[in-house]
Amino acid sequence: MTKNQWIDAHCHLADERLEAQLDNVISEAEGLGIHFFMQGGVGPEDWQRQRDLAQRYPGKIGLCFGLHPYWVAAHDEDLCEIALDQLAPLLPHALGIGEMGLDFRPHIMKDSRERQIGVFEQQLELAEAVQKPMVLHLVQAHEEALRIMDIWGVPASKGIVHSFNGSWGKAQDFLKRGLYLSIGGPVVWDQNEKLHQVVKDMPLEFLLLESDSPDQPPPRFKQSLNQPASLWDVAGKIGEIRGMPASEILEISTENFKRLFHYDGN
C-alpha cells in the first residue's frame, strides 16, 4: 500500500441502506485517498453480504465476522449456538473477529444480558484460538467487559474498541490492556470535550480512524447516511487537537491498522 491509500478501520458497506448508492460512496472515498474498507460483522446474513461485497469490489473490502450484541439480543440461545458454529470456520478467511462485546442499553438488552455475556466469552475463546484481532462493541458495559476480559484474558492478537466515545479514564483501561481505540464521527462534535481529551492525550500508536458508515455521522453528514468520506472530518478534528495535518493522522491510523490486522495491502 502506497502513500495516500488510507483505510477506514470500521464501516458497514454491506448495510442494505447503502446498496443503491454504494458505487458512488466508494468512488467518492477513493477520490479522497481512502481505498480500503474494514467491515464490522453483525450476524450470518451480514457475513454473506460481506463476502458478496468482497467479490463485487475486489481488494477493497476487509472481512470481519462476528456476532454483534444487537444480533445476540434479538436471537435465542439455540440460534446463537448455531451461529457460533457457523462463525468458527469463517474466521481463517477474515482479518478480524467482531463486532463482539456487550450492549447493556435497556432497549437493546431486554432479557439478553446473560446470553450476551456467554456469547462474548465464546468469541474471546475463538479470537485466541484463531489469533485474529477483536473488534469490540461495548456500550454501557465498560466494567463488565473489563471483568470478563481480565478473567478470560485479552487474546494475544489484541483488537480495537470500535467507536470509542468514553472518558480518558476508560480509555486508559483499554490502552493498558493493549487494545487500540478506534475513533469516529462523535469526535467531530464541538461539545464532545471528554473525547477531545482522549485524542489529545492517548499514544498515537494506538489510534485508528473509522467512519462506522452508514451510522454515527459527523455534523457535515448529519442529514444523510454517513460515508467513509467522513474519515477526513475525523482526521481533521484530531489533527486540530494534536496540532498535526489531517493527512498525517490518516497515515498514522493506516499504519496502525496494517500492523494490528497484519494487512499488507494485498
Rank of each mutant, 00 (worst) to 15 (best):
E81G: 07
F37M: 05
P186W: 14
G59Q: 06
I249H: 12
H10S: 01
W6L: 07
L63F: 03
F120E: 04
F221L: 00
S230L: 14
P186M: 12
E240R: 08
A141T: 10
D233F: 11
L13M: 01
K222R: 15
F221S: 04
Q50H: 01
H35M: 02
M149I: 11
E143G: 09
Q50S: 01
V25M: 02
P155W: 06
V130E: 14
F206T: 04
P44G: 05
F206C: 02
W6K: 03
L22Y: 03
P218D: 07
I148T: 02
E128R: 14
N226V: 09
F37W: 11
V135R: 02
G185P: 10
P133A: 05
L126A: 09
H262Y: 14
G40R: 12
P58R: 00
A171F: 03
I252C: 03
D85P: 05
L32K: 06
S253F: 09
F104I: 08
S224V: 02
L91A: 02
Q122P: 12
D150E: 10
P214E: 05
E81F: 13
P69N: 10
A73S: 06
E143Q: 15
P89I: 09
A141E: 10
A229T: 07
E128K: 03
K258R: 10
D76G: 06
E16D: 08
F257C: 05
D201A: 13
G169Y: 14
E77D: 11
G178S: 04
F261Q: 00
K200N: 15
W168V: 01
M134E: 08
Y70V: 13
V135C: 00
H107P: 04
Q48G: 05
G59I: 02
A229M: 04
Q197V: 08
W168F: 11
Q21M: 14
Y180H: 02
G43M: 08
F221Q: 01
D76L: 04
E255C: 12
M202T: 03
W6N: 05
N266R: 11
P217A: 07
V154F: 13
A54D: 09
H196V: 04
M149Y: 13
L138K: 12
I61H: 01
A127N: 12
H75Y: 09
Q123V: 04
W168Y: 14
L63Y: 02
D212G: 03
L207T: 00
C80T: 04
E19V: 12
A20S: 12
F164L: 06
E251N: 12
Q140S: 08
E251K: 05
E210R: 07
D215R: 09
P58V: 01
M38P: 03
C80I: 01
Q5R: 13
G40V: 06
I252D: 03
Y70S: 11
Q21Y: 11
L79Y: 15
W152V: 05
A20L: 10
L138P: 06
E125W: 12
S27M: 10
L53Y: 01
D111W: 13
T2C: 11
G169N: 15
Q5T: 02
L22F: 07
E193K: 15
S211T: 08
A9D: 13
L95H: 00
D15T: 10
L231C: 02
D8H: 06
V188M: 09
L91D: 01
K237V: 00
N24Q: 15
R220D: 14
L136W: 02
I97G: 00
D111M: 13
L126W: 13
D15R: 01
E19H: 13
N165Q: 09
H137C: 02
K176V: 14
L209T: 03
